[in-house]
Design a protein around this nucleic acid. Sequence first.
DNA 1: GTCGGCTTTGAG
DNA 2: CATCGCTCAAAGCCGAC
Length: 829
Amino acid sequence: MCGCSGKAREDSPLGNRGREDVPKQSFLESLSDEGLVEYIGGLSQGQPEAGRQNEEGYSRDDYFHDKQRRQERQDQEFRDRYGNGQDVFCGVSIYVNGFTRPGRMQLHEMVVANGGKFVHFLSSKRQVTHIVASNLPLKKRVELAGYRICRPEWVVDSVKAGRLLRWQEYGLLSTGDEMQSRLPLDEIVSCKHPDFLKQFFSKSRLHHLSNWKADLRAEFCGRFLDRPLEVPVKGEEISVLHVDFDCFFASVAALVNGYDVCRDAVVVCHGTKNSDIASCNYVARQYGIRNGMWVGAAQRQMPAGVELIRLGYDFEAFENMSKRFYEVLHEWGFQLVLPVSIDEAVCIVGRGMSEYESGEICEGIRRKVGEMTNGCSVSIGCGESLVLARLALKIAKPDGYKIIVGCGDEKFWSMLKVDDLPGVGKSIVLKLNEIGDNRSLLQVRQLPLELLQRCVGEKMGTKMYLAVRGKDDEESLKMVYEPREFFQRKSLSVDINWGIRFDKIQEIDQFIDRCTEYLTEKLKEIGKKTSQVTLKVMKRSEDESIEPPKYLGMGRCDPLSRSARLGVPTDEGGIISTEIKSSFRTLGCPPRELRGIAIQFNKLGDSNSKQSKLPFVDVKVYQNLPNDVKGEIGDELKKRRISIKNSSARASRINSYQAQFIQELPTQIRHEVQNEILINDKVRRTKFDEMKEQIAKRDFEKTNEKSHFLGSNSILIPIKFQNQTNFKKIVGLVLNWVDGTLRSDGPHERDLRLFEKYLQRLSDANRLPLALRISKLISTRLELRAESFSHCNGFQEWERVLLQLILPKLNKNKHTFQTVRKLDIDFDT
DNA sequence: GTCGGCTTTGAG
DNA sequence: CATCGCTCAAAGCCGAC
């Protein structure tokens, strides 16, 4: 039950449950003269709330703010006075759109008296659970798509029935309507539901952040498809402006919801306790609240009597504000406007500017963005390098600008801390602390290059050394001088580390299918293919509780990952997801322990480029060249973008003859043939092709003779299973055993123990490769049979055995395995 | 020394 | 109710050759 309550009163204006005979009296009729006057006064905009009315600068925002609070208070009062104890609309929040019968006022009364919320403005859409309307113009339908929209009779009938009726029965839009079939708002969807991804992403700030960034980058690259891109001349002086919204989410959310960013402590988040604060304004920061903090912790920072305003996300509003922001920058006439993120951009002027000129631009931009965004503030850092502009921005914040002349003076550097440098986070700060007191950048400036490199790594050392002298490193400058390459997408991935709770591997397979579909769709959109995929899995740490503090969170996890080559670039979901599912099995994470999944497409290539027809040099040919020729040729090949590829069977099953043949086929058949070849390739590889080829590379006869410890010439003691010493035969035996028990109850307990013993002996005798092989063969066999038998007990039992018995054993001995891999032998299945 | 796979780090 | 812990890129590290 919910906590809604209201005292049942004889004089309630609304009929109680089942008391149709009581004549209905309108709320207004029930009010005393005095009450009526007060109520009307409240509804017509009236005066600002007491306590504020004497203050100057009472703005439109204040007005909405006050109005909202006043309304809430009135609703509460009304509920207290006339509520009938019913909580029909508990948890329901209703917005009435347009003309209805009964009218807005009556609906308001009914909803409030029966425990619901009534929302007067649709400024922040997420608070609304249902929209009530008698008819909706097309424009509104589009705008409100995805919401539960129903006729007012739903409210009336629900009150009559004394319980919440199904809104669908009163759906305004016909059932065949596309809008109506959309995912209903706030429907509870678990990770097993087909719409989980969509729903999760629609509410994830980090997903939006990443997506926006990718979109901005793509848009940037697209801008210069038709016209030439003019970058500054290298070596010439440039001026850089780094422009950034002040606490973007918090500012916009405050604006949209009618709060005052300068006075209210505002945070943007989903929940109330263990929910991340995505953004907090500077008022909240005064109390020690920081981005990334959990709301509960933030609440505890607040002094008694000061309210922390929690606001939800309004991604649409964020996007709109950002659009206006970028519009201002684009119209300013910069040589380049480089997108950093939704709320941040770097503007380049291809010449030096005077301090005065820079100041004019900064002030101009700040004023214009303020106008365009209804009062949001941006801060600007300006200097003659990217890093100086960025550091200046740190000082400019909030709501200001800062121009650095030359390479900055002592005072400037002493104001900055190590982690103000781009690319320096807590990990590098720790390392730097080990070599002395380096809190301010003035101190870091004293450190010699070599010491820095030894402390934080070669690249980072160089980068920092240059940065504290106001200079950019080569890598960062690519953004300015080769922006197209810099903003090109090099990989594509999807990560889900929230809400992941599965029971069976089949459910995970389905989930992998959905993720792959999501990715391949994007892949096709950008016209690319992938040739390498990586699966990353978050597995619950052994000492972490099953359910971590954060609701449906991942808790502490061990990350595991595995990448796989695809032979030939592809954008076909089937091939990719099979590969990923196979990878998942090799990582050995029991389904219930899974807390997060990520799938990455690491190597992207153009989908239209005919890979097989591109010139390339066989790696073997290349490697056999004399060393002195190699370097020169290598450089030349690089210049001409000719790749050195492995043309051996391992890299690709499609040879050039095959490729030509395939090219001649009609499109549809071509796809099928390619598919077939790829699947064969994959199956071959899962059967330890990699191992086989490694051996093939060696002097076969010699190595093989020495390491072949299973034949009659074996130099090692034979290990028996079922009185059999020949490994090939043992494998045959085991696979038959698997096949024979798949459709019944799975392996017999006693057989299993014998097999386990065999594995243990292999492991004890440092012959883990054999154990690995036989396990992999079982895994492959199960995979092959999955389609026909995955519903059988025996099959599921075998999967369990593999995951919980065999794989842990192998993992435990992983180290041993790696060191004895050299003993590998040829093995034919 | 170089390569490739896996991990770590940081960014917004 | 809770809560929505993404996604990209670069660099480091380690073992294989």
